[in-house]
Design a protein around this nucleic acid. Structure first.
Length: 183
DNA sequence: CCGGCGATCCTCT
DNA sequence: GAGGATCGCCGGC
């Protein structure tokens, strides 16, 4: 994955991240997944975004260098993971909402504590848990060589169509068609 | 299969 | 001091 891929309009990047792969390397082993669901969140022009107002300690990564991982805690119990992506000088990130296991299925099952296989990675909190994401990965460089725990890679081209819908679980700007789902 | 609800804690106002 | 880019359990149909 090249930084220029992420240095474009956040909505375009969200759509094109479908089929791209995440590689998680830990002491326990290697996990590889293909991204199947994303949402775009922009800056001051997106009322649903964490970055719709001033820079704060939490949202600061969304204003910075593309290719960083933005990790945050939601509802007091789940982590969500985002890829910082925006035009040069812009603001934004792509929420990764679901993925399909490619390698390390046993590790994913362990991380998910016995959830049925069809519920392993089908939601943002489940994806983060399945990959074994922790808050110390906040700000990690997904494009680093060599990889630093989590890496983003180009995957095989998508086979099927892309479903475009409203974003899930928000109460502002509910009609923006910025959610992308692949099978 | 579907809708409702509680858990749980960090962040910003 | 409120509310959130969620999840899984429960009960009802």
């Amino acid at each position: 994955m090249d930084a220029s891929f992420l240095e474009r309009d956040t909505v375009t990047v969200a759509k094109e991240l479908l089929g791209c792969e995440l590689v998680r390397q830990t002491e326990a082993g290697l996990i590889r997944v293909a991204i199947t669901e994303t949402e775009a969140y922009q800056g001051s022009d997106d009322p649903a975004s964490h970055a719709c107002r001033a820079v704060t300690p939490r949202n600061r990564l969304m204003f910075g260098e593309v290719g960083r991982l933005y990790v945050y805690l939601i509802y007091g119990m789940h982590l969500c993971i985002n890829v910082v992506a925006h035009e040069p000088g812009g603001v934004g990130a792509v929420l990764l909402r679901a993925a399909r296991p490619l390698e390390g299925l046993e590790l994913i099952r362990d991380n998910r504590g016995g959830a049925p296989d069809r519920n392993l990675l089908n939601g943002p909190g489940k994806l983060a848990q399945g990959l074994g994401i922790t808050r110390d990965l906040n700000g990690c460089d997904l494009l680093a060589e060599p990889p630093q725990g989590l890496a983003l890679e180009r995957g095989a081209p998508l086979a099927g169509p892309i479903l475009v819908t409203r974003r899930i679980g928000i109460t502002k700007a509910v009609d923006y068609p910025w959610r992308f789902v692949a099978e």
